[in-house]
């Protein structure tokens, strides 16, 4: 008997409603330029949030993603600028930077993971600490100012952000690919099952022969790699990094995950919901830009209200069970 499952359909319904509001607010909303802009912008938060879905499903939390993104941006820019003198091929430089970015992301995740599992420090504290460390490192690397990518490379690299395939910008395709892989990983593999089990009850997971520490560490590494991927498509957008890069990404990513229906205390996660959550957050910002009714400066306030309402609805649905 098919019945409407509000918990699953809720975020999607919200997306539809906000989309309709967008249409009503401004005719420019439906223009293909605006729509592809929305999708491209939601890619960064979306990709980071897919990593966060794994961490949160397995019962953890990662606050360091925003400053990690800024730090990785800075590393990429410094590396590419440094390679300019010794390597001729621009493509080779960019590929090296991309590899380095993925490596740094994975190691940063590994550090978060090991500190939570082996040193047994609460994830909140560990990632609060690494958040401060990366933020401070990027500020130091930029000497308090801004790191800029060499223009010659920047011209080549900008294709990654501005290039279009089948009418959609590259970042959207990357977002889609990460989402599909994330969905398969979470819902169809043993690792995904183990994430659910660990987040639901670590003790039961341990007594079910699950390597709890390994699963948790792997989720932080996945998160780090997702941050690296988001950074790879983010750097060519502005071609610079500073202490202000990636500010509050952690909150937007966590918000996207929670709006999507993943349970903050762990044990239940939905990749599809996270994608919808990221779209909702970007849509709100976009609509506020297109209307005079609410100041654009109140974007954060509206997002905050949406998160609180989403969790309230989630709790209500939980209690009825």
């Amino acid at each position: 008997m098919p019945k409407l499952d509000l918990k699953t359909a809720g975020p999607f319904l919200a997306l539809v409603i906000i989309f309709i509001i967008g249409i009503l607010v401004n005719d420019a909303f439906l223009s293909s330029g605006n729509l592809s802009n929305i999708l491209a912008r939601s890619s960064f938060i979306g990709i980071v949030a897919i990593g966060a879905t794994f961490v949160i499903t397995a019962g953890g939390i990662d606050l360091s993603v925003g400053s990690m993104a800024a730090f990785i941006s800075g590393c990429m820019i410094l590396l590419m600028n440094a390679l300019m003198d010794s390597v001729d091929s621009m493509i080779a430089i960019i590929l090296l930077a991309i590899l380095a970015s993925l490596g740094i992301g994975a190691v940063a995740g590994l550090i978060n993971g090991l500190l939570t599992t082996k040193a047994k420090i609460e994830a909140f504290i560990v990632t609060l600490g690494t958040m401060g460390i990366y933020r401070s490192l990027i500020t130091y690397m930029a000497d308090g100012g801004t790191l800029s990518l060499n223009f010659t490379i920047g011209d080549v690299y900008s294709e990654v952000y501005y290039g279009v395939l089948l009418g959609l910008p590259y970042p959207v395709w990357v977002f889609l690919a990460v989402a599909v892989i994330g969905y398969v990983l979470l819902n169809m593999t043993v690792f995904g099952r183990h994430c659910f089990a660990v987040g639901s009850n670590e003790r039961v997971a341990k007594y079910s022969a699950i390597h709890v520490d390994r699963v948790k560490t792997a989720t932080y590494m996945l998160q780090g790699i997702c941050v690296a991927i988001a950074t790879i498509i983010y750097v060519p957008r502005l071609g610079s990094a500073s202490g202000q890069t990636g500010i509050l990404w952690e909150l937007e990513a966590i918000a996207a995950v929670i709006i999507g229906g993943t349970v903050l205390k762990g044990g239940y996660g939905r990749i599809g919901g996270t994608v919808v959550g990221a779209l909702i957050l970007t849509l709100i910002g976009n609509i506020l830009n297109l209307t005079d009714a609410v100041s654009n400066y109140l974007n954060g306030a509206v997002q905050g209200i949406i998160v609180i309402v989403a969790v309230y609805l989630q709790r209500g649905a939980w209690r009825r069970d």
Binding site: F196, A197, S200, N201, R203, V204, K206, Y207
Partner: peptide
């Protein structure tokens, strides 16, 4: 209840 079964998860799970 504490280490045997995930009480909020399904039976097959």
């Amino acid at each position: 209840k504490g280490s045997g079964l995930l009480l909020e998860k399904g039976l097959a799970f």
